[in-house]
């Protein structure tokens, strides 16, 4: 038994990353970042607002939260719709109660299907982030470049048509990208993306096509990870986020601005028995000295 000799050669074994998407950088060695209003800790609430067709697509992969039973999967189709009809409005109210501005990552078909929803987001002053067309529009290596570009361009166009403003930011479904994604986003005029979770502050990607900023939207702190995957309670979620806020606020005293991204999902955190924990969390955060709720667009612009 023996492996192909190539398995013991390491063509990218040299200082720096093993790719050209961004350079290595130590968070603690950077010039301190300053947030608008000189806040120490920027809390960025990002809500994913999604539409799952009852006819799921597995190409290139099936989105998390998608249909699970044999067709027709009423239970998941309607449970996800519950988030959009009910849970999302509970979240809007919870944000309004503390005067927090958030970013909403919207599947663009929502704008055509539920225009009132998009009007309500805009009226409340929240930022809209492009988030593919619907939950069948997943991206991964293997998807043809023109198909991927069409997903990006269509979703930007649809959101611009609905709101009059072209989204500056992008979130891929499941944060999944192909090798082409950062370049295609930059070529389509997207200023920042929320896909890479390797940092805690915005940083610039390095690509021939031109600049795009990555704003890390920590998946470990998401309601999907903590509540759906790890099966913790809503109160445990709240405590974990409060612990994170404590730590980051202390770190900000010596290292400059820190950010705490809260990625939440209407059909997870917007349920009647969970929304109270979110309200308590937001109220507690809003009462902290030196904390500001910033949209991911404001975070990206602070780099």
């Amino acid at each position: 038994m023996s492996l192909d000799p190539a398995y013991l050669t390491y063509p990218r074994r040299a200082q720096g990353m093993d790719h050209d998407l961004y350079p290595w950088s130590n968070l603690f060695d950077r010039a301190p970042i300053t947030w608008p209003g000189d806040a120490k800790l920027a809390v960025s609430v990002v809500i994913s607002l999604e539409w799952f067709p009852i006819t799921p697509s597995d190409k290139p992969f099936r989105a998390p939260g998608h249909m699970q039973t044999a067709y027709p999967d009423y239970r998941h189709y309607t449970s996800r719709e519950y988030g959009t009809r009910i849970g999302f409005y509970r979240m809007l109210d919870a944000l309004a109660a503390v005067g927090a501005k958030a970013s909403v990552a919207v599947n663009s078909v929502i704008a055509e299907r539920y225009p009132a929803l998009v009007r309500d987001i805009v009226a409340a002053g929240h930022e809209i982030v492009a988030h593919a067309t619907d939950m069948n529009a997943t991206i991964a290596t293997g998807l043809a470049e023109e198909e991927e570009r069409a997903i990006i361009r269509t979703s930007l166009n649809m959101m611009e048509k609905a709101t009059g403003q072209r989204p500056a930011g992008w979130l891929s479904i499941a944060r999944s990208q192909s090798w082409n994604t950062p370049r295609l986003l930059a070529e389509e005029g997207v200023g920042y993306m929320l896909d890479w979770v390797n940092d805690e502050l915005p940083y610039a990607m390095t690509m021939p096509a031109g600049g795009i900023v990555n704003v890390p939207l920590n998946h470990e702190l998401s309601d999907r990870q903590i509540i759906t995957t790890q099966q913790h309670s809503a109160d445990s979620y709240r405590i974990q986020i409060e612990d994170a806020a404590d730590w980051l606020m202390t770190e900000a005293q010596s290292h400059g601005g820190r950010m705490l991204p809260l990625h939440i999902t209407p059909y997870i955190m917007g349920l009647p028995y969970r929304i109270g924990a979110l309200e308590t969390l937001l109220k507690g955060l809003a009462g902290r000295e030196g904390l500001a709720f910033l949209s991911t667009g404001e975070i990206a612009a602070s780099l």
Binding site: M17, W24, L27, F28, T141, A174, S176, V197, N198, D199
Partner: peptide, 23 residues
């Protein structure tokens, strides 16, 4: 487990050398 690049899998581990180690 995903086609390369596995953005979350790789990025999560890359976090170690940018953020986690130092903390």
């Amino acid at each position: 487990t995903k086609p390369h690049p596995d953005v979350v899998g790789y990025g999560h581990r890359d976090y170690a050398n940018r953020v986690g180690h130092w903390r």
